[in-house]
Amino acid sequence: ANNADDPFPIWGTCMGFQLLTYLTSGENLLTDTNSTLVSYPLYFQQAYKTSKLFGSGSAETGDIINILSKENVTFNAHFYGITPKTFNNNTKLRTFYRMLTTNYDDNGKEFVSMIEAFKYPFYGAQWHPEKNNFEFVAKLGPNLHHSADAIKVTLYMAQFFVNEARKSSHKFKNATEEAAALIYNFPVVYTAGNTSYEQCYFF
């Protein structure tokens, strides 16, 4: 679709990030990374300066980079990741994606935490940009932060990706078809007592 000038952005979070690396490389390159229920600051790599996600040079982006690099606002909940060495040794990965950031797990092992495709609007985060705003379940622990800066990070990532999606000309055939596809057709259920999520939709 993108090759045909039909913008189609993709964002992969956590396991979605891992899936992107699998789909691109054609093999499972993951290794153990003990990063469960913990937040880290990001270690920015040189490639971020030429990225769409962080390379604008705007004051807003500069503020977000400052927050991400200094504060524990990126919530991780994964047992696996991909190391920078594995990433760089795989021709398919290193020529398809920029490595934007890395992190170190609780055992000191470095893993890639954000990627962005060179040519396509494809993005991946090994951490969870969405949780700062929406998840307050006690079992997630005290390492999930809801500070003003943490909320800024969530909003920045969401607004960036929505702006990418706005470039698409895809639309429903009519208002009736559109209305039938809305999330509001389904009840939201409070599930904090039974899951790691405040609320869930059941289809």
Results as ranks from 00 to 15, higher is better:
Glu198Tyr: 08
Phe160Asn: 00
Val188Ala: 15
Thr154Glu: 01
Ala180Thr: 00
Gln18Val: 01
Lys173Ala: 14
Leu29Val: 12
Gly26Met: 10
Tyr40Ile: 11
Phe161Cys: 10
Leu155His: 14
Ser168Val: 05
His128Ser: 00
Ala165Tyr: 06
Tyr104Trp: 06
Ile10Leu: 09
Lys131Asn: 00
Ala59Leu: 08
Ser25Phe: 04
Val153Ser: 06
Asn185Ser: 09
Phe17His: 03
Gln126His: 10
Gly81Lys: 00
Val162Ala: 08
Phe44Ala: 02
Tyr184Gln: 12
Ala138Thr: 12
His145Ser: 11
Leu20Cys: 08
Met157Val: 11
Lys49Val: 14
Asn185Met: 03
Glu116Tyr: 06
Phe75Ile: 04
Ser39Tyr: 00
Trp127Ser: 01
Asn163Ser: 15
Phe161Met: 12
Gly141Asn: 02
Asn3Ala: 10
Thr21Cys: 12
Leu30Asn: 05
Thr176Val: 13
Asn28Arg: 04
Lys139Leu: 06
Val189Ser: 10
Ile82Leu: 13
Asn133Ser: 10
Asn103Pro: 01
Glu178Ala: 13
Thr13Tyr: 00
Val153Ala: 03
Lys131Leu: 06
Lys171Cys: 05
Leu30Val: 14
Pro121Tyr: 06
Glu164His: 07
His145Ile: 14
Thr33Trp: 06
Ala117Glu: 05
Val73Asp: 03
Met15Thr: 00
Tyr104Leu: 05
Phe202Gln: 10
Leu23Arg: 08
Asn107Glu: 14
Arg94Met: 02
Ser39Cys: 02
Ser39Thr: 00
Phe96Ser: 11
Val38Ile: 15
Leu100Pro: 04
Ala4Val: 07
His146Gly: 10
Met99Gln: 15
Glu135Pro: 09
Lys70Gln: 15
Lys152Gln: 11
Leu182Lys: 14
Trp11Glu: 08
Asn132Tyr: 01
Phe75Pro: 05
Phe136Asp: 09
Lys109Gln: 08
Asn76His: 12
Ala179Thr: 00
Thr21His: 09
Gly141Phe: 03
Ala138Ile: 09
Leu182Tyr: 05
Pro142Ile: 10
Phe186Asp: 09
Val188Gly: 14
Ser69Trp: 03
Ile82Gln: 05
Asn3Phe: 08
Asn88Arg: 14
Asn2Cys: 15
Phe161Leu: 12
Ala125Asn: 07
Leu100Gln: 09
Ser69Asp: 02
Leu155Arg: 15
Phe186His: 12
Pro41Phe: 02
Gln159Phe: 08
Ile10Thr: 08
Lys167Gly: 01
Pro142His: 09
Trp127Thr: 00
Asn76Pro: 05
Asp32His: 13
Phe8Ile: 04
Tyr43Ala: 14
Trp11His: 10
Phe160Leu: 06
Phe203His: 04
Thr101Val: 07
Val188Pro: 00
Ser168Asp: 02
Met157Gln: 04
Asp32Trp: 12
Gly16Phe: 04
Gly16Cys: 09
Val153Cys: 04
Trp11Thr: 06
Phe75Cys: 01
Lys70His: 15
Ile67Met: 01
Asn185Ala: 05
Tyr120Gly: 07
